[in-house]
């Protein structure tokens, strides 16, 4: 009977998750093109990619993008969550406003950043020129490292609310009595954070950072709207390169191989989050000793 009740959920998972994933992995092992069935070629796509400088550049870009953006999103998100956890006027309203960057459609925020980083009309350049700090406009998206930093900044702006609001929910579950006891014992603010807040937040940090890393690692829209992977592939992520090769270039097999190559990185991120951050027995279902 229990098995029967599980069937609908299992069927949904099989049809909408396992099948597409399996098909993607299979396509990565074939030379299938758009409109033309492929034949099995084993690991040839991966052997090609191994020798492809642009692929390795996209791996580097993706890792840099994910690591830098995730660390900053975590730091700023936690900070923002702690600020929002205090009592202040219009608390609910301000908490709602903080979510705005996350609510705005990605394409829209990408277009806004596209204007902010415009090579001729950037508002940042304009302000700095008016203030006399710089003489010429900053080429935000034209120089490889500037472009990387710029797209990472856009991703951080977009991703902070998710981290902040989720951690805020976590913060509100920390019992006040622990802080009171610690205060009586003479603990400083930093000690209270270090010994109470952070340890009790780790389960939710594990979850929120797993999702944050997954979202960042698989980001597509921000890059596609702002740079199309340019200049000279400096901001191409694995997801954008996969799309460019599979759909625009017609090499579905190669594109699928790039997408499949993302899986080990994603698994590693998930395993790190779960086993690295949830290292207490009670977090993994053991007793609270």
């Amino acid at each position: 009977m229990g098995f029967l009740f599980m069937l609908p959920a299992a069927a949904v998972l099989l049809i909408f998750l396992t099948y597409p994933l399996g098909l993607g992995i299979w396509m990565g092992l074939t030379d299938v093109k758009v409109g033309r069935p492929g034949t099995f070629i084993g690991l040839e796509n991966y052997a090609w990619l191994f020798e492809d400088d642009v692929f390795w550049l996209s791996v580097f870009n993706t890792l840099l993008y994910t690591v830098v953006a995730s660390i900053i999103k975590f730091g700023l998100g936690l900070w923002l969550a702690m600020i929002l956890n205090n009592h202040f006027p219009f608390k609910a309203f301000i908490r709602a406003i903080v979510l705005l960057p996350f609510i705005v459609p990605t394409v829209l925020s990408a277009l806004v950043f596209w204007w902010i980083y415009d090579s001729q009309d950037s508002v940042i350049s304009w302000i700095l020129i008016e203030m006399g700090v710089i003489d010429t406009t900053i080429d935000f998206l034209g120089k490889p490292n500037y472009a990387r930093a710029s797209v990472i900044a856009a991703n951080i702006w977009r991703g902070i609310p998710f981290v902040a609001i989720t951690l805020l929910a976590g913060l509100q579950t920390v019992p006040q009595s622990l802080y009171e006891a610690a205060t009586i014992d003479g603990a400083t603010e930093w000690q209270r954070f270090r010994k109470i807040t952070f340890p009790l937040l780790t389960p939710i940090i594990a979850v929120v950072m797993t999702f944050s890393v997954l979202f960042t690692f698989t980001d597509f829209q921000l890059i596609w709207v702002m740079t199309r992977g340019g200049p000279i592939n400096a901001t191409h992520l694995m997801a954008t390169l996969s799309y460019q090769r599979a759909i625009i270039g017609g090499s579905l097999g190669e594109g699928a191989a790039i997408a499949t190559a993302m899986i080990p990185f994603l698994l590693a991120a998930i395993l790190f989050s779960y086993f690295g951050l949830q290292n207490r027995k009670w977090q993994q279902g053991g007793s609270d000793d």
């Binding site: 415009d118 090579s119 935000f140 998206l141 340019g230």
Partner: peptide, 10 residues
């Protein structure tokens, strides 16, 4: 300056 980032509309 800036042409390195130019897409079709710039």
């Amino acid at each position: 300056p800036g042409v390195a980032s130019w897409l079709d509309g710039h």
